[in-house]
Simulated scan of single mutants.
Amino acid sequence: MNVTLKQIRAFVAIVDTGSFTAAATAVNSTQSSLSVLMRELETAVGVRLLERTTRTVQLTEAGEEFMAHARRILIEVENALTSADELVARKRGRVTVAAPPVVAALMLPSVIARFRATYPNIVVMVEDITPQEIVARVASGQADCGLGTFAGELKDVHSRRLIDEELVLICPSTHPLAQRREIRSQDLRDVSIVGLAGSPDVRRSLDVRLRLAGVHVPPAIEVRQMFTSLGMVGAGLGVAIWPSWATRILPAFNVVARPLVDPPARFTISVITPARRTLSPATQSFVEMLSETGRDFTLA
């Protein structure tokens, strides 16, 4: 059976108007075209749907039953088209964003607030996970986009630079380094360091800086989440690396930030999206807003 929407629309128009002539006018067609469509429809379903005389058109018993289904089909198609139009217009949808906890807590809220004000009916889901998980989630389609610092060759994702972040050294406000205006690698001799085992790029950068300065200080403590390192530093257990755009939270932990120099330590925060999947209108809007809002972050 090969029934088309054009045939169903013709059938419903004929029944609603009571004649082929009136139906042709209603659907902007010709009477002969509607006759052809009805013959094709009745051939496809295998039964006569209409009884035609020179003046009237009436439903057969099979036509009565088919009519109920035909109306439902047209309603469902109309609803589907309306939903698609709304989605394209970015009125509805869903976006799943993967990001490290520190980015999810300190960078995303302002972006999401701005996004929700513009698109109130789009649901935003945040997956606050480790950096190592983000690329896999986005590449597999489990997340629509991801934020973070990504090093090396990325497979199955596209990457777009958002901001160049400057890393700073954080230490307790009572620490001797807190008295300095800036921190050099040599200043880290004999200093306890809280290492980031879960952030290999940051860890590698710090290790290289220390080796070049002739400083060989293994981390006194290793953690996987940056928020954990903040707690450790606040407790006086050492110093750590922290993104400059996220320094506003430091006073709550009695921790201060000092710029790293010779040379400054910088990383790029990017947004990644699946390479093998077309972005939904909602995701496109969110990524665009991420790019716009990224310029608003003041880097120390």
Rank of each mutant, 00 (worst) to 15 (best):
L196C: 07
A197Q: 15
A197K: 14
A197H: 15
A197S: 14
G198N: 10
G198Q: 04
S199Q: 14
S199Y: 15
S199N: 13
P200N: 08
P200S: 12
D201G: 13
V202Y: 13
R203C: 08
R203V: 02
R203W: 14
R204C: 06
R204S: 11
L206S: 10
L206N: 07
L206T: 12
L206A: 10
L206E: 05
D207V: 13
D207A: 15
V208C: 00
R209I: 14
L210I: 03
L210N: 07
R211N: 10
L212W: 12
V215R: 03
V215G: 02
H216L: 09
H216Y: 13
V217G: 04
V217D: 06
V217A: 12
P218E: 04
P218C: 02
P218F: 02
P218R: 03
P218K: 04
P219K: 00
P219E: 07
P219C: 01
P219F: 10
P219Y: 07
A220G: 09
A220P: 01
I221F: 11
E222L: 14
E222P: 02
V223S: 00
V223L: 06
V223E: 02
R224A: 13
R224V: 07
M226P: 02
M226F: 09
M226V: 14
T228Q: 13
T228K: 08
S229V: 05
L230K: 01
L230I: 01
G231H: 06
G231R: 10
M232K: 11
M232F: 13
V233S: 03
V233F: 11
V233D: 08
G234D: 08
G234K: 00
A235E: 08
A235I: 00
G236A: 09
G236F: 04
V239T: 10
V239N: 09
A240N: 08
A240F: 04
P243I: 07
P243Q: 04
P243D: 09
S244I: 07
S244Q: 05
S244D: 13
